[in-house]
Amino acid sequence: MNSAIRIHQYGGPEVLSLDSVSVGEPSEGQVRLRHSAIGLNFIDVYQRTGLYPVGSFPQTLGMEGAGVIEALGPGVEGFRVGDRVGYAMALGSYCHDRLIEADKLVKLPDGIEDQTAAAMLLQGMTARYLLKNSYPVQAGDTILVMAAAGGVGTLLTQWANHLGVTVIGCVGSPEKARLAQEQGCHHTILYTQEDVATRVRDITGGEGVAAVYDSVGQATLHASLDSLRPTGTLVSFGNASGPINDFNVGLLAQKGSLYLQRPTLATYVRNRELLDGCANDLFQVVQSGAVKVKIGQAYPLAKVAQAHRELEARKTIGATVLLP
């Protein structure tokens, strides 16, 4: 038998239940994977609450993990028993063992430890598509990163720096401002004390930024739009403060012919070629030392409810891993 954290209904952290489940043998195209580390991400909260529906109950949560392949199903090519692998955007990681489609997996390089992989794949590949696809940054650009001290924010900041970009980081506390600066933010803004758009205009000589990467959602929408230069791009990739509803697209015209994208990582890793390209780009930049993965906290898998509470309260710093 295998332990898994499942939900039997949508709700708060209290609905996370430690259950015994049977794993079974892998079928066509699948492998059986023994987890060594599991990533915690805000998408897990969205799925627990029902903002992002997860289908029928009971359902094992979690979208990211790393471990070792223990068995191969028929038709699996390119992997062997004993391979160290990782994955992101595959529901069901909150468990010790699982079955998973092989086409979701990437092999881990020798220089990337399992906990690092579990902490970085979803957030790191998100940072990669944000910077290279959603709005492809150019050296000399200035960007604004909301929640700059969070898991995606710290990786995005370092990577943008590596690409020659000036980064303004928006954070909620002096402690997080210090962390954002350590990760390479050239300027930080305390959104709890300062008017974000006014400070951005001051920093940029009145011009505004080329792009805003915003994972906060409703609470920061107008500050993000007002921080952009004419024809700038708002990439809204999360809803930490709640979803954006009833958006008036006419605002994009009024505020300077702006662009708006609401992306998801799944689109950018939707086939083997895209997944390998995205993951390998991330592995290379981490192995080069240009981007360092900070694991701010680790919890036993059985204490995942506590991890969810602290993530929602914005008490976590950097990436978080769960240990089975």
Rank of each mutant, 00 (worst) to 15 (best):
N2Y: 01
H8G: 13
L16Q: 05
S17E: 13
S22H: 12
G24H: 13
S27C: 10
L33D: 13
G50K: 13
V54A: 11
V54T: 09
S56W: 02
F57R: 06
P58D: 13
E70V: 00
R84F: 03
G86M: 09
Y87L: 07
G92E: 06
S93R: 12
R98I: 00
G111C: 08
D114Q: 07
A119H: 08
L130E: 11
L130K: 10
A139F: 08
I143F: 12
L144Q: 04
A148V: 00
V152Q: 10
H162S: 11
L163A: 03
G169S: 05
K176L: 09
D195Y: 01
V196W: 09
A197I: 01
R201P: 11
D202R: 15
V212Q: 11
S215N: 08
T220W: 15
A223H: 15
D226F: 09
R229F: 07
P230C: 02
G232E: 15
T233R: 15
A240I: 00
G242E: 11
I244F: 08
L251R: 15
G256E: 15
A279M: 09
L282E: 05
A298M: 10
A302K: 07
A302R: 08
V304E: 09
A307K: 06
H308A: 04
E310W: 03
E312I: 02
E312Y: 09
G318C: 06
